[in-house]
Design a protein around this nucleic acid. Structure first.
Lengths: 207, 207
DNA sequence: GTATTTTTGTACTGTTCGATCTAATATTAA
DNA sequence: TTAATATTAGATCGAACAGTACAAAAATAC
């Protein structure tokens, strides 16, 4: 789409050598692996293939790159986790959710675990902004799952008196735990069993 | 007990100014709050009230202090979490487990969350030893709960075909998630509801 | 062409990092 | 008292850190 002849004319100065999204993905991977404190600007310049002034001009300081990386993770990989929630039947929606989570945290497409569950809590202990960011992301996921469970309750797939707020937090909790376990080296098969247990616990099936 | 007249004679040189356990507790609190990468040796000297050479003589390097702090956490606070598992009835055992977890992670006796769930995963992404340490602690907790669930199954409190291995991982998963949620500011009341849901999910009660 | 604008690449800033060297200090043993 | 021993305290090491100044480079505008 950048080669669209009808798009805006090229800007004035020397053209950028980097692609914003590609560079941010590289930064994401680095923070995801090494955490915030374990990532240096030399690590970032190497991974992003940008020199320091370019990074500062494009993103701000190190904190801002980390924040942008978290947002990128949520908008891309996190969003993929939530996609299966649109499945018509609740059991399949939750099973698909966990399937995508397990696929995302077991290292096939990136580092082990999830950048939110594995690196943000470490920063949240001393940084109020990190704590707020963590709370916001958790609330976002809880909210998305809560909406799906409320719909399931309306559809009669859950008891009318089910506390869907707590159930939604239970589903998210399974995801957080799987992320930490994957970071420790848990196998896909093991996490799959755990996922079935969580699905059964929420839908009420006897697992 | 250090004033016991029958104890060993005082060692030869200048007496130590610090108490080992007290200094380690101070280091634990610091790592727990700020994470490994966020804690500097200046932070440690200030918290432990020891100068650098004394820290190095007593513990080794920064990594060794962190490792000792994790072990101290597991042996003291972590052990307290597991104590209620000795309750005769499974529901009370698990309820007590989560009660102690919530008490431990919501900041009344220390920083928010748990040093294992909130700081170790960040290091585990780039450090094989941290990953092994994380895996070992998780296996330890899973194992303790597994033993309790196996006993409950024998006692008829769980179905004979219950997969107590996965159920144990489910219980631990609840703890991990509560730790991360507490780090983000979750209230005791909220975590209490979540705990009841986890207990019900494992014991089979309809929650 | 020439001027203007924006990015790049390198060198550099002062600071902070983990770790150590050295000497003063405080105890026991003889 | 004297010697031996172990810890404390402060200074200091080279390396790594986050962030920036500055000039060369590469494009557009006129």
């Amino acid at each position: 789409m950048s080669t669209d002849p009808g798009s805006l004319p090229r800007p004035r100065g020397r053209p950028r050598k980097f692609d914003h999204a590609t560079a941010l993905d590289a930064a994401l991977r680095t923070f995801w692996t090494r955490g915030y404190g374990g990532t240096s600007l030399d690590d970032l310049t190497a991974a992003m293939k940008m020199n320091r002034p370019s990074i500062y001009a494009a993103f701000g300081n190190k904190d801002a790159v980390y924040a942008a990386a978290i947002e990128r993770y949520v908008a891309t990989i996190g969003a993929r986790y939530l996609e299966p929630l649109q499945e018509p039947r609740l059991t399949e929606a939750l099973t698909g959710f966990y399937r995508n989570v397990i696929d995302g945290v077991t290292g096939r497409h990136g580092p082990l675990g999830c950048i939110v569950a594995c690196t943000l809590p470490a920063e949240a202990g001393a940084s109020a902004s990190a704590r707020r960011r963590l709370a916001r992301v958790l609330a976002q996921i809880d909210g998305a799952i809560h909406a799906r469970l409320a719909a399931a309750r309306t559809a009669g797939e859950l008891p009318a008196d089910a506390d869907v707020r707590v159930l939604a937090q239970t589903v998210t909790s399974g995801m957080l735990a799987m992320s930490v376990r994957a970071r420790a080296g848990a196998t896909r098969a093991n996490l799959g069993k755990l996922a079935r247990r969580f699905v059964a616990a929420v839908t009420g099936a006897t697992g």
